[in-house]
């Protein structure tokens, strides 16, 4: 009577119940598994679990179960570590993008007179949990990204860009690598704002940022340093390489125009270049050197590239 009741209930549970003997043969399972594995009872009873579910990682599975048998204690396998063990269909095939049911599995020892004779595996459908958690992680990832990005120009914001520079700086120091820094400022931006309004100025910033970004390599790190000031970190780049990049940026921007409400705006940039120096003990020194070069470029009439003084000395010596 009680047995019938138990079987009745176990067949209505929304949890899979799979019972194995110590040689991994299937003793029984409940309706949940029969339905989701889409196999008949008589196709599985007495068969090895590895025959019925060939997708199981056999060595891993055997070791896992041996801990349950030997230690007489339960063991777990969660979806966060393994999305699923058994390839089962689930009840949300349309509204989620996962093909198989995400599972939390519990392995229970079934003891008879002090010895483990059976292993009971409980399989819970956590496709919903998995789906929402994945969406949440995606949202958190986007949030973290938006924390690093300047909303207007899509370049990195200053805080994140400086964190990157600090990392690149200490990495270059540690491995004795080269590192170059390019700082650039739009020429006479205030005037441009007065003539075309702030929206015109914004359009110039957006287009300029895009032009610069298109010229960079994968590992270069591009950020908006201030109002109309941008900066590029060039890892593993020497002075010649950095000067080339800077010159290419200057020419590209000088040649192109920005379209704004039917008018075309011409802009130029002044650029300062510095490379990591033995005397620079902090990354701020590198910024200062590049910044000084940038101001020199401004003072010398704008729309030009200047190298930092220390860097220049070295170049002269080498030449």
């Amino acid at each position: 009577m009680l047995d019938t009741l138990c079987i009745n209930i176990s067949n209505r549970l929304n949890t899979g119940i799979l019972i194995l003997d110590n040689d991994f043969n299937i003793i029984m399972w409940n309706r949940f598994l029969e339905v989701h594995a889409n196999k008949k009872d008589n196709q599985v009873t007495g068969k090895s679990v590895f025959t019925v579910f060939p997708e199981l990682p056999q060595k891993w599975f055997e070791r896992k179960l041996s801990s349950v048998i030997q230690l007489k204690t339960q063991s777990f396998c969660g979806w966060e570590q393994r999305h699923h063990l058994f390839e089962l269909s689930h009840s949300r095939p349309i509204t989620t993008d996962s093909h198989f049911m995400a599972q939390n599995c519990t392995f229970l020892p079934v003891e008879v007179e002090g010895e483990v004779e059976r292993i009971c595996i409980l399989i819970e459908d956590v496709t919903d949990v998995c789906h929402y958690q994945t969406q949440l992680n995606k949202a958190l990832h986007e949030l973290a990204l938006s924390n690093r990005i300047d909303g207007l120009t899509q370049a990195f914001n200053r805080r994140h860009w400086e964190e990157c520079l600090a990392k690149e700086f200490s990495r270059a120091r540690r491995h004795n690598h080269e590192l170059a820094l390019v700082m650039l400022d739009l020429d006479q931006f205030k005037l441009l704002n007065d003539n075309f309004g702030h929206q015109g100025g914004d359009k110039v910033l957006v287009d300029t940022a895009k032009s610069i970004n298109d010229l960079l390599r994968l590992g270069d790190i591009f950020g908006r340093y201030g109002g109309e000031e941008f900066a590029v970190i060039l890892p593993s780049t020497d002075l010649v390489g950095a000067e080339e990049v800077a010159e290419r940026i200057r020419q590209t921007i000088a040649k192109s125009t920005v379209d704004y409400q039917g008018r075309s705006i011409s802009v130029t940039v002044s650029i300062g270049v510095a490379i990591i120096d033995e005397q620079d003990s902090r990354y701020e020194d590198l910024i200062r050197n590049a910044d000084l070069a940038l101001y020199r470029a401004k003072a010398m009439g704008r729309n030009r590239v200047c190298l930092a003084e220390e860097t220049l000395d070295k170049k002269t010596i080498v030449a």
Binding site: L71, T73, Q74, S75, Q81
Partner: peptide, 11 residues
């Protein structure tokens, strides 16, 4: 680390 923890805790 989850596997080891579970073994240590439950035993």
């Amino acid at each position: 680390i989850i596997d080891l923890s579970s073994i240590l805790t439950t035993t």
